[in-house]
Design a protein around this nucleic acid. Sequence first.
DNA 1: CGGAAATGTGGCATCGATACCACATCCGGC
DNA 2: GCCGGATGTGGTATCGATGCCACATTTCCG
Lengths: 352, 352
Amino acid sequence: MSPRGQAARAVPQPTQPPVRRPTVQDVAREAGVSPSTVSRALHTRGYASPAVRARVQAAAERIGYVTDHNARNLRSRTSTSIGVLISDLRNPFYADLAAGIEQELRSSGYQMVLVNDNGDPAEELHAAETLLAMRVPGVIVTPVTAKCPQVLQDNGVHVVCADRELGRSKSDVVLSDNETGARELTEHLIALGHTRIGLLIDETKWSTGAGRLAGFRAAHADSRLTVDENLIAYTSFDADAARLTTRKLLNEHEVTALISANNVLAQGALAELKDRRLKIPRQISLAAYDDVPWMSLVQPALTTVDQSTVEMGRSCARLLLARIRGELTPKRRVVKVPARLVVRGSTGPAPR
Amino acid sequence: MSPRGQAARAVPQPTQPPVRRPTVQDVAREAGVSPSTVSRALHTRGYASPAVRARVQAAAERIGYVTDHNARNLRSRTSTSIGVLISDLRNPFYADLAAGIEQELRSSGYQMVLVNDNGDPAEELHAAETLLAMRVPGVIVTPVTAKCPQVLQDNGVHVVCADRELGRSKSDVVLSDNETGARELTEHLIALGHTRIGLLIDETKWSTGAGRLAGFRAAHADSRLTVDENLIAYTSFDADAARLTTRKLLNEHEVTALISANNVLAQGALAELKDRRLKIPRQISLAAYDDVPWMSLVQPALTTVDQSTVEMGRSCARLLLARIRGELTPKRRVVKVPARLVVRGSTGPAPR
DNA sequence: CGGAAATGTGGCATCGATACCACATCCGGC
DNA sequence: GCCGGATGTGGTATCGATGCCACATTTCCG
């Protein structure tokens, strides 16, 4: 057992049937050229006459040659595997993000090494070390700790932070336009006559929560409404906790609308409203940031802000690859993915 | 552009700051031993005195040494990366499966290379080739084509098929106990007095659909009911199609209960029932195979069969690792993961 | 107390592809 | 007709860790 419950570092096992695979040498012999030429003809950009190139490719095909990435990576000191570190694959947000990333990587010939860090700093750091060991040229991470991007960058690995930013980092980052999204959502409710709007939120230290809160405030300010701080209900990132927090909020304060800051909290909020047999939206309106599929299946369907999560994932991958290819100036990039208000049945005019 | 829309095969890019990382040599110098000893002390099972081992580990720690997996893999002719080929990460079933696999792999010190093949045979095959290039010791796949497991095995890669089986394969396989699960679900409805039960299903060629259909039939047989073949509605793997098929089924036949064979079809079925303003379960009961989160959020919550998808993923990984470690007899393993009936509000007594 | 066995460590070749340089060949120009 | 320069190909060292064997040292037993 390793210390602190860390994952064991696996030692490669001797495989039983060592199946001999053809090498560059074999292709060279088959095509009647040298190994160097084979390498150039198949992969390296550059010098190989079309004739030779075709002959080599045919030969490779014929004998079933498959490049050995390990050898290639070792010699060329890089790799086409990209690390992706996310918090929870079972949350549709992260699943969509990963799906977008994978799609873009795959279509560019890269592979995705996916690690679920469960939002645990130790796991995250451990994963970073593994990715260093793999000599990946880049990593996309929804960071838990600033140390993780830090360690990676210190070792020359390009990093793109996705969805959130911790303090001032030095890495590229792709974010949902949280402030605009939350502002539009809040404005939508205000336009419906709501003035006492509850906000269920789990954190405001990272750019994500902070942005959404800022948008919430900005919408109020625009309409010359003052935000009642008591209506901002802080909870933890957990549906059950969100439910209890919602209960407390409704018990103690009068609200005509409720916004939940993400899809997980929305589950808790909805559960509580249903439990109280509140008519949505007649008695109370409900809206959520981060549209996920179930939100359009419930009745009434939820008004949400769609983060275009898959597109966000694609952006992350595109940005990272551009960085790896050296196509970008050294300056750090901040990409904002627009968020889109989706009005459905769960929001309506304020009662009375 | 490459032919047939195939993904480009990326060529490693020259990274700009080549950051020199410490090697075994450096650790050896620091610890005052030979490189061989460092290797043994850090990784290889075996011979290194506790004193030396400690000294080497301290030295490695001090200078920030991280093993180069590429070098290690090349020399030892294997790797700790495992390929995972699934159809659609955005479907919670596959996401859960991947999450279970990743968890188990990570805790054993392996990495997951995840590829989304979109159920496309060409993508699947291309992915298999990439994994061969990476020299992965094993792959977990929800197969689209028998050729994919075939190619991998021919090249000495261990394969575990997850969730389904294509004809008679030679690989290990982990399945949900589809027949038992579907039978229990059907029995549940029959016990409630339903005799005209519709089944919405997309395929019966693979073990998955075939098993569920068999369970459906078995439950009828046990109760001496004959299955009305008209009530078995074949559709395609798509929510909208399922909705139309449901519409057609309800238009043409009298049913008092409806079972959908998976979570995607359930969306379509539910949408159609809601559209018709049918009271669930008073006028019609609805149940689904494959419990996913939204099914307990809708009202009434859906009665389902929970496949324990995460556990299924873990099983796949455990089985594959055992195979890789050579802990298993050559005989092919078939693991059935029990399915669990979850009764919720969407099923009730048959009307009249 | 001698020699055989056990124990632990170092040396060297090697995994497979590629970077880099040398050089053969062909070309045109003065 | 000779030489400088393209152009394309081959040769060789190398990436970094480990497998394997040799061998120094210690331990144990007759």
